[in-house]
Simulated assay, not measured.
Amino acid sequence: MKCPICGKPAAERYRPFCSRRCADVDLAHWLRGDYRIPAEPVPDNDGEA
């Protein structure tokens, strides 16, 4: 298995990543919202019965 960030072989300890650095880079992508799926906003239907 290759690291999804840099392509090096994955390390058992950090699987699926090769190092803590690549795991932290991936976490930063999640925290910034880089992996979000674009979608239309849901209309607010407050007050409807």
Rank of each mutant, 00 (worst) to 15 (best):
F17E: 03
R36G: 04
P16C: 10
A23G: 03
L27D: 06
E12R: 15
A11I: 03
A10V: 09
D26E: 08
K2T: 14
P4K: 11
P38G: 12
K8Q: 15
V42G: 00
A49W: 03
E40V: 12
R20A: 15
P41I: 01
R20V: 08
P4Y: 11
E40L: 11
Y35D: 13
R21N: 14
P43K: 12
P16R: 06
C6S: 09
R20M: 13
A11K: 15
E12D: 15
M1D: 07
P41S: 04
D24M: 15
A28H: 04
C6E: 08
P43H: 06
E12T: 14
A28F: 01
C18P: 09
P41N: 05
P43C: 04
A28L: 09
W30F: 14
P41H: 03
P38K: 10
G47H: 00
Y35E: 13
D46P: 00
F17P: 05
Y35G: 14
A11W: 07
A10F: 04
H29G: 13
G47D: 02
V25S: 01
Y35A: 10
D26I: 00
A39V: 05
A11G: 14
A11V: 13
P4S: 12
D34N: 08
A10K: 03
A49K: 12
H29L: 11
A39C: 04
F17H: 15
K2Q: 11
K2M: 05
R20H: 06
P4Q: 08
I5P: 00
R15G: 03
H29S: 09
E40Q: 12
K8E: 12
R36P: 00
M1N: 09
C6T: 11
L31I: 10
A10I: 08
C22M: 07
V42I: 14
P16N: 03
F17M: 05
W30G: 05
E40K: 13
N45G: 01
H29Q: 09
M1T: 12
A10Q: 07
S19G: 08
A10R: 03
